[in-house]
Structures are given as structure tokens and as C-alpha cells.
Write a protein that binds this DNA or RNA. Structure first.
Lengths: 172, 172
DNA sequence: ATGTTATAGTTCCATAATGGAACCGTCAAA
DNA sequence: TTTGACGGTTCCATTATGGAACTATAACAT
């Protein structure tokens, strides 16, 4: 499968991967969250090549995750700011950081701690059900085929791989 | 910066990216969560090349995310199962799916809905503080330098890029 | 007004990662 | 004993990436 096809998959995870499914994009976004917003700063702090960074920033702007804002009078210098779509990636970053803290850490402890407004203690982020408030994990939660898949199944719009996918799922 | 160096960064997000910072790995893991556990099934449902899949599965086993279990008497056929480390990726997948549902969806609606034990309604996953229960988002939460960074700063163990990184952060 | 530096890139080329087809070895059923 | 399924590996062409060198504009310094 070609890279561009990923964006057209039905699966929301696959679609998301078409945005940040590479080694740099989430790190660039992390930098912008950390207020490292300028090309040269992002480049120096990440060690990404300029070429790659230029390409990634352009894509993120095209995809509506960042916007490019001139910060000088001459309008030749820009910084990148998170759009609403970009800001909404925060829970993903926090959840990944949490997993990394737990499973990839060394003996020095967590590199960052998270503090949020209105709570004394460092935040320990967990994913919960908005409805009942219970924590969600692999043992108590299950994905079920929803309207998005149903509609396309009915209209017969799936690729060979997606047909395989959903026939495998229905067996279980 | 070389790819292998990413795994040795201090940042938990960078370290996590060394595991699943590419276009396929999270999709492979998603399949295993969906009980698509065998080489040929994963390959047929994802459309990844066999070569790539073989490489990704080997890495995930090396990294302790999956384990390879023989399912025939002759021990020549295997399936891949999530370890505890792998199972703990569930909140990440759910959070990414949620973002994709919100920002990458088409008019057919969510491809999957999540149901969890003990709640009638489809789960709408949100990231909350385990301590106070409040939702965590970009507006109410902030990363602060923690013990992991402090220890390495004191010992002077950072690469050029990481020094840049943390000097930029301390300015803000 | 002239040279220097900082920013934000682009161009070019060598190297690394990926996709796709073909091939291989083991086992199980026909 | 042959056939097919499974779980790969090998090989080669294509694509993505890293790194160095170069460019264009504006601000700053002399």
C-alpha cells in the first residue's frame, strides 16, 4: 500500500497516522506545545535536518494542525502555532508520555511532570469514559463496528485489504 | 540525528517514537488488539509488505511489546500476543482514534464505537487527572522539568540538541 | 552605505528505509 | 506424493531521509 492511501482508510487510527505516523512529526508538535515555535529553534532543539523540517511544517500547515504566523514587520519570519485541531493533540501527547514514563524510563525518573490548574499534585493522566468516569483499558473495553464502517460496507466501497479486515473482525 | 539515537533521548515521547514512530507499527498493534494475530492475517488486512511486517514484528518482540507464541504442535506457526507493555498501549490507541474521529472523519460517522464493561453507552474517552478527575487539555495543563531531566543536567550528560532544548525551555 | 549576522528556507547528492515480486522450508491434508 | 497454507527471506527498484552547501531577505553594526 502506498503512503497516500493511508489517509483514505476508514480507520481513524490509520487516518491519524497519515498525519503523524513518522519519526519526527509528533516531536515537532511537542516542540510547538513547549513554545518552541520557530524554524531555527525547532531545528536546533530536535536535530532534524532543515529539509525534513521544512517538509513536515508545510504538511502540518496543509493538514490544518499548525498555522504559520509572521512575527516581524517585513513578514519574512514566521512562527508556527497550533490550531484548534493541533491543540486537541495534547491528550495524545500526554498519554504517550505517560506510557513512555512507565515502560521506557531509566532510573532517573520522569523527565517531565504535568501540572494542571486547580490540582496541587502532579497530574497522572488516565483515559476515562466521559459518561461514567471509569478508567478505560484493554481489559474492560472493546471496539465495535460503528456507522462509518457500516455505511461503506453497505455501499461496497472497501478496498481488498479493508474487506479482509472487516471479514476477519466479524468472525470473532 | 540517527534513528537509533531517538531511543536514548531523555524525552518519553521521543523514546516512545523509537518503538512506534513509523507508519506501520501502531497499525500492526491495532490489529493484534483486534485479535488479528497471525502473520498472514496481519499482512492481508493491512496491505503491508511481508518484508516490512517481518521486520516490525521482530522489533516489537525485541522491544517487549509483543510475544511470539506457537499455536501448532510442530512449533512452526506462530501468533503474536500483546505483553503487559503492549496491552498498556490501549489508552494511546483509543486517544488517537478519538482525535481521528473528531478531526479526520467523513460524513459516515465514526468507524468504530467503544463499549466498556459496566456502562450502557458507547465510551467517549477523555484524558483525566487520576488525582482530581478533571479533564486534561492544552489549556489547563503544563509540563514542568522533572527529576529525569534534572539528574542528567546536573551530571552534564546531554547531547548538543538536548542542551539547546532545555535552555530554550528554561527561558520561558 | 556597506558589510555582517540571523532567519527561513531550497538544492543537490549519498545513504537508509520501503514496496513488491519471487523464492524457500516446514507441516498437514488429499 | 503432491498440493497448498503458513511464515518467512532474498533481491532489486523506488522512495524517504540526512547533511552539506547555497540563497534570499531583513535587521543590525560600523
Amino acid at each position: 500500500m502506498r503512503w497516500e492511501d493511508t489517509a483514505n482508510q476508514t480507520c481513524s487510527i490509520a487516518r491519524s497516522m497519515s498525519i503523524f505516523g513518522d519519526r519526527w512529526t509528533l516531536l515537532v508538535i511537542r516542540q510547538v506545545f513547549m513554545k518552541v515555535r520557530r524554524f531555527s529553534e525547532i531545528q536546533a532543539t530536535l536535530g532534524i535536518s532543515k529539509h525534513r523540517l521544512s517538509d513536515r511544517l508545510t504538511r502540518l500547515v496543509d493538514d490544518g494542525v499548525l498555522e504559520k504566523v509572521a512575527y516581524d514587520a517585513g513578514k519574512t519570519r514566521f512562527e508556527y502555532r497550533l490550531t484548534e485541531k493541533g491543540l486537541d493533540l495534547y491528550p495524545i501527547l500526554v498519554t504517550i508520555a505517560q506510557w513512555g514514563d512507565r515502560w521506557m524510563a531509566d532510573e532517573d525518573g520522569k523527565p517531565f511532570v504535568y501540572k494542571h490548574a486547580g490540582c496541587e499534585n502532579p497530574a497522572d493522566p488516565i483515559v476515562c469514559c466521559a459518561d461514567c468516569g471509569e478508567p478505560i483499558n484493554a481489559h474492560n473495553c472493546k471496539a465495535e463496528i460503528g456507522p462509518g464502517i457500516m455505511a461503506k460496507l453497505t455501499r461496497g466501497e472497501f478496498t481488498k485489504e479493508e474487506q479482509e479486515q472487516y471479514s476477519v473482525l466479524r468472525k470473532s
